[in-house]
Design a protein around this nucleic acid. Structure first.
Lengths: 333, 333
DNA sequence: GTGAAAGCGCTAACAG
DNA sequence: CTGTTAGCGCTTTCAC
């Protein structure tokens, strides 16, 4: 049963009007008598007519996609972000088109160019390999772009929580619980998120009069594996610490593993705080105290802003807050 | 800088040939002298020409998307599946268009219809709310469909591992380790995957001469939360068991939590085996012994088959195997 | 081997 | 208010 697709012509024929009339009623453009409107609507629904998005896009000069460029498709954090994007895209005529390139700058540039060229009327970019200048170059048509994961700029709308404050909260909580030797397991030093969270950590230390000790900092790569290796490294160094602040939950997962292998009890020997509050965090043993990032909401907001921009409106994001979720991975000393 | 997009006309003008000639060289359709071929290629690359996919799709009657309908976008399992799909879609002119509707039949029907109507030239459907008959009805144009998560049929190509065998392997491993009271925490009884895994569990029991005890079966919903609740339930019943076979790893995560709350040591009091081998499994405490499902490969294979079908070829899937990954959640008695 | 022209399905002037 | 017409950018006959 390879029946031909119903076109606007079929509708116009059945309704006994011209195609432009059909177009007008379907798009509510131009004046239409109530009479013909009804006839056309009837015909359209009788035939189950669905406009061909290609033809429509061709004349309207719209590709119809909301591009999403993220570093990784797998992994709990970015998946939740996508869920948020989809929450809003679902209710629009746009489709979500995803691309992920492991945060490799050249590949991301290519992917972004491809999206803008072939699929999307605007792009949500979560990453910081490509800076606004790079993006401008890739985006000659000046399509809307929304940024996440990099410093807020004027060039493009950005959605972000305050990582510095989140990290400050986490670290201060550890300090308030009597810890003074607090290690920080973090990601690639080049990344903006790394810098922000590190500076929140330092501010909390400063404020409590605790000197900053560079030996307590380990850089890894924000993965479980990275956290595991990073912590092994730290435990190998001859530095004492009673608490560990992890740059994200995935690294905390790896850290737990390394800690266990070194026979360190959590939280008796080492207290741990994470960042993100991925869903696994509450099922860790012990359940992980962490900073909640409203990642799904961030996806929603990003999509709202982008689609608004595509449609020529200015959209102002609702403010998003990071919040400390207290569970059982921190011990008062 | 809102420059106009480069069109085939621009190329033809620069190359000094007609648009049809340009089209011919770019698509390698029809005969072309080596001479003009070079000129056109040069012009195209000078202008960085990219054909408008909408115009091309309109004439070729192709939407350009590979639709993917999955139950959940979040969650480790389906995200890995998407990664596999993207692995192959990336190298084709298709784009990946995702939809997820929490496995609700009516919503999935709507989403599938929408995909087929607006976005996709074929769909990968992971779920079993919609059966082949339902799909046929939704798919009047007879576009290619690839199925996962339901019984293999002739109607559409299916990619699946043998769940029955996987469950058999898991259960037999428990039996080989001296367990005879083996509980099974599983999902919705309606789902095909539930039935297959249950029957593998039963076959292993039968083969070892262990009577099947329905009190040892708990149905939940394949989520961490579900596993947690399900196991609480089971622990509340007055049945003894020394081992637990979980229908998936996410439920095993919840089960660990419930077990701990009831002060049951894993594996000393209760041995646990999962299914899927999601990335967290190895970081659980103790690391979870589980059946590995090559989910990313399944995504790749599904995409290959679908795209092959869209392009009119028949593609035969490489066989995929489930394999038991032994870690530390099972104790020999 | 190449160009002219038709047409994919739709929207948007432009007449009437 | 409605119909006619001209494209959107591309591929594909059909001539030459």
């Amino acid at each position: 049963m390879t029946r031909r697709r119903i076109t606007i012509k079929d509708v116009s024929a059945l309704a006994g009007v011209s195609v432009s009339t059909v177009s007008r009623v379907l798009n509510a453009s131009g004046p239409i008598s109530e009479e013909t409107r009804k006839v056309v609507m009837q015909a359209a629904s009788d035939l189950k007519y669905q406009p061909n998005p290609l033809a429509r896009g061709l004349v309207k000069n719209q590709l119809g996609g909301v591009g999403v460029l993220i570093p990784w498709l797998g992994g709990p954090y970015f998946c939740s972000f996508l869920e948020g994007v989809q929450d809003v895209v679902r209710d629009t005529p746009f489709r979500m088109v995803i691309s992920s390139e492991q945060a490799v700058k050249e590949k991301e540039a290519e992917a972004l160019a491809y999206l803008l060229e072939n699929d999307a009327d605007g792009v949500i970019y979560y990453g910081d390999s490509l800076r606004p200048e790079d993006i401008a170059e890739i985006n000659p048509l000046g399509k809307p772009v929304v940024l996440l994961g990099q410093p807020v700029t004027d060039s493009y709308p950005c959605v972000a929580i305050d990582d510095e404050v989140g990290a400050f909260l986490a670290t201060r909580y550890l300090i308030d619980n009597g810890h003074r030797q607090i290690a920080h397991l973090t990601g690639d030093a080049q990344q903006h998120v790394t810098a922000s969270r590190l500076s929140g950590y330092r501010r909390a230390l400063d404020q409590a009069g605790i000197p900053f000790d560079p030996h307590l900092i380990v850089h890894a790569d924000y993965s479980e594996q990275g956290g595991y290796r990073g912590l092994q490294h730290l435990l190998g160094r001859a530095v004492d610490f009673t608490a560990l602040f992890c740059g994200n939950d995935q690294m905390a997962i790896g850290a737990y593993q390394a800690l266990r292998e070194f026979n360190k009890q959590i939280p008796e020997d080492v207290s741990v705080v994470g960042f993100d509050n991925i869903s696994f965090a509450q099922y860790m043993h012990p359940p992980l105290t962490t900073v909640q990032v409203p990642i799904r909401s961030m996806g929603r907001v990003a999509a709202q802003i982008l689609i608004g921009n595509i449609e020529g409106q200015e959209v102002f994001p609702a403010p998003l807050e990071a919040e400390l979720i207290i569970r059982r991975s921190v011990l008062r000393r």
